[in-house]
Design a protein around this nucleic acid. Structure first.
Lengths: 216, 216, 216, 216
DNA sequence: AATGAATGAGAGTTCATTCAT
DNA sequence: GATGAATGAACTCTCATTCAT
């Protein structure tokens, strides 16, 4: 009857229990998808009683939302960390995409979970994509200010880049057989280069096409 | 037809009933998603008894597969029909994307359904994307042969184009509020032009970039 | 809306259709049991449309009742025909049991159907057994009048005989593997003789035990 | 216990709930038969929620099998307990049959359930009869060793005794109207005596038939 | 804080029966 | 007389959630 959310553990033991549940949920959702995953399966994987779940989460939806939030934060972090270590615009772009594909290869769960989010948690999907796109927009605007990207609407370009990464990653990472450790291979080199060439041409200022060597 | 249950009625009335069910399923799946959609909701939307469903489909899975198949066929048809009425490569590309967005606007179900397919019907998702990409590849190869597209791997470009259309369509068609008739607005003009410009630059042969000022 | 039973075909074609349905029902009920048998399976086996069934039978129950009636008539007929060809009381008894086991061996359907009758068709089971027992009672009374059976309540003895035949038949006919033609083997000779000896001793007038040769 | 689902509760409350379900199933199966009995009817009779059923049993089939097992164990126990308190072979036999009819009178479910087992649970029916018959065989062999039963094949005699009890019980216990408490009357005295006389004569060693006038 | 037995709404599915053709 | 598409009540079974312990 209390209106307080149940998500705040008061004791240290409680904190540990909540963490076990989140970790179990990530694994179970990734393996089975949202609907096939049941609370009992999650609590069993966490090694706690089924009733315990509701001490920390209001519903199955809520733990799902928490998970999407978590994964989104991690993929953006991976991308921005990688990009920020480069000074050149082109190198930063390459590093960002490499980080994105790397995260996809090692965390296929992200992909799987996101694809279910639209109906499970209205808004979670939009938030996920919007946040990543915001990162692209900021990068593009900075590059425009430095004269390294042509004059254009950065929002449209950002969604285009997001789409390119999304489907290339789907095709050449997720669809390739995962190894025994559940990790997929990375995008093949020539595909990555073709993709970067495609993007460079689309973004380059007039008359500043990339140097011959990389154009093929 | 190869997927129909043995009991599938063969009369004209039966054909009409099956069509009503497919149309209802499209609407219900699009609105509620696969898991929230129930056979009863579909049959109610179709205006038939719940048992009637099983005269035409073996399971909820099967009508889902049939629907994916159906929508895939229709969207590819819309795209190729539109593109084939243009002789110029650029015009054909524009027409193809316009048809894609138009289909998305009037059949949001396609999008929403595909996003759920990974866990629901492994294989259907891949088939859907692969078939559309095949269409892109053929178009790109023809344009390459005509010297209108630069030398490049058409498969990578095709997946990039697919991704661009996918996310631009998601952002500017599906995420925009649908009207009373359930139809979403089309992509705004300037977004469409920015996108086409992006693509043109990515595909244009060296030295054949559209002249400044005539691009829009 | 008419109160007339639908079981009376008016034309010759109707007579044939009804017969096809009865034959199909016997086969389907025997194979699948009452509840697993569906009207559609029966009509398919009969080669008619499913709606046709209700031109001749009011319900699934009714055709079942008709079948029980039919099988009961046939097994009693087999038994009494066999017995009536013997003049000696002992020989008649032996012939009756032989006929009973023979019918069981070639029509295992009877057994299977009867075992389901109690809940399917209240009264059918009682009628079946009562009628057979009535035959035994009449035989016993005649033998008593001839001094060939001791003074006793023929009704109790009749039910005892029925039970003996029932379980010996179950154990040594039905439980033995049927051949390729669906026919079970007959009761082994020594079992039959042991059983007849058992019965003879139970029924024989005091001091008139069967001759040494048949006692073992 | 070996047939319990993995989720079967282990607390004392759980034990009580399981017992309530088994008792309810006995009553419902006896009244309605296997096919008319539904899980909901059983759980309603047990006074628990319908989902509770599946905490204790995997399916309707399983509770049926468990019930057959349970009733079989109890009827054999009642029979052997009664018989073992008598030293005289004849008295033991009488006590065994009395116990059998008494069990039938208070647990008509056993009878009704067994009759349905053939199609419902192949094997359960055979096991039930075989186990009871095994008890008869052992008793007969012991009596033969003591010279109280004539030389004969005890297996055939055992099945004959089983059949006699089966049909006499059906006719004079089950077919007689049950009282308000659901319990049927016992076999009438003169029927019981006639039956015992029938059996005694069938089993008695040559020359040891009970003397006239002292048989009843 | 933790438990797990209990719940009941709702899922997918079947089939005896009806009725327009 | 014959058909078979259509029906809907009833089935078995699942699972997110509650609550007494």
């Amino acid at each position: 009857m209390s209106t307080a959310p149940r998500t705040a553990p008061r004791t240290e033991r409680g904190t540990r229990t909540r963490a076990k549940l989140i970790a179990a949920a990530e694994q179970v959702f990734a393996t089975l998808g949202y609907h096939e995953a049941s609370i009992v399966k999650i609590t069993e994987a966490a090694g706690v009683g089924s009733g315990t779940f509701y001490l920390y989460f209001d519903s199955k939806q809520q733990i799902f939302d928490d998970l999407v939030e978590d994964l989104n934060r991690r993929v953006r972090n991976a991308m921005s960390t990688a990009a920020s270590q480069e000074t050149d615009r082109l190198a930063a772009e390459r590093a960002g995409f490499r980080a994105f594909f790397g995260f996809t290869a090692t965390h296929p769960a992200l992909y799987r979970i996101i694809r279910q989010a639209e109906f499970v948690s209205p808004g979670a999907l939009r938030l996920h994509y919007s946040r990543i796109v915001d990162g692209y927009i900021q990068g593009l605007q900075a590059s425009q200010a430095a004269g390294q990207v042509r004059d254009m609407d950065p929002e449209v370009a950002a969604w285009a880049l997001m789409g390119i990464g999304e489907l290339i990653g789907m095709r050449w990472v997720l669809w390739e057989q995962a190894g025994a450790d559940g990790t997929h291979p990375d995008v093949p080199e020539h595909v990555f280069e073709e993709m970067m060439d495609f993007i460079n041409r689309a973004l380059a200022p007039n008359g500043q096409l990339p140097a011959e060597g990389t154009q093929r």
